[in-house]
């Protein structure tokens, strides 16, 4: 199965999708693969593997700390690729790498994409690689390796730009729930509903997954009223910090 197929097949499943973000190398450096396997067993639909970075600008304290911790554990980009080399013999759900651009630039963009393709990574979320730079400098390389690049939209993104992002997308759109860094616990109030509805009414070509501020069954329900699915990051990492990898099954079942 090609990578795009894997994402496409998941995105066209009936029902709402749950995607989980975690930071590679946290809590322990060798937890990466066990976490992915447990997430699939517990029923998550997709996994975002966070590449730890020293200066994660768009992240709140929880993901910052998990990154710092992972780096202190000795996590590196090379080590991640070593860990996930055989991942496709173990899981079949779509895998997306989420990472800031500098470590990828140092690894070499071409080499990074090749390593992703070899490990069976399906897509990339690169929060500090803007759309125009992507299209000008990197689209060709990333597409050549079959990687679907996923872009973010926020409540401040204009309709015109959302349409532009929709047409540059090849799998789904990452819909940031509020103007915030990750992990900010906020009410899914009326303003949020209006934003979700505005996006739903745009009738975009690609489905949306909502992220930021989702951590439990209630916020998952609320977020997926208008969207195809939702992404949990900080909430999952908080659970890992408290309960370790043994808590994964109960956590996922508690949401779905």
């Amino acid at each position: 199965m090609t990578m795009t197929d894997r994402l496409e097949k998941t995105l066209s499943k009936p029902g709402k999708l749950l995607s989980i973000y975690f930071t590679a190398g946290y809590p322990a450096v060798e937890d990466t693969v066990p976490i992915i396997k447990k997430l699939e067993e517990a029923g998550a639909d997709m996994v975002e593997i966070g590449l730890p970075f020293s200066d994660p600008l768009a992240d709140g304290p929880v993901i910052q700390e998990s990154s710092t911790h992972a780096l202190r554990n000795g996590m590196t980009t090379r080590k991640l690729f070593d860990q996930i080399r055989d991942i496709r013999q173990q899981v079949s759900l779509p895998l997306v790498i989420m990472g800031y651009f500098n470590p990828i630039l140092q690894f070499g963009v071409e080499a990074f994409c090749a390593a992703c393709a070899e490990s069976g990574i399906d897509g990339l979320i690169l929060p500090d690689l803007p759309l125009d730079v992507y299209e000008r400098d990197y689209k060709e390389i990333m597409e050549a390796h079959g990687l679907s690049v996923i872009f973010l939209i926020t409540p401040q993104t204009s309709d015109e730009r959302i349409r532009q992002i929709d047409s540059a997308s090849t799998s789904f759109i990452y819909m940031v729930s509020s103007a915030s860094t990750t992990g900010v616990q906020s009410e899914f109030g009326k303003g949020r509903d209006a934003y979700f509805k505005r996006i739903a009414d745009l009738d975009l070509k690609h489905p949306q997954l909502v992220g930021f501020g989702i951590s439990d069954a209630a916020s998952f329900q609320r977020a997926t009223t208008y969207a195809k699915g939702a992404i949990i990051g900080s909430g999952f990492i908080r659970m890992l910090t408290e309960k370790g990898t043994g808590g994964i099954e109960a956590y996922i079942k508690g949401i779905l």
């Binding site: 500090d128 973010l152 915030s180």
Partner: peptide, 8 residues
């Protein structure tokens, strides 16, 4: 090289 949140 800004996240989309800062684009506007």
């Amino acid at each position: 090289f800004i996240p989309e949140m800062l684009y506007p």
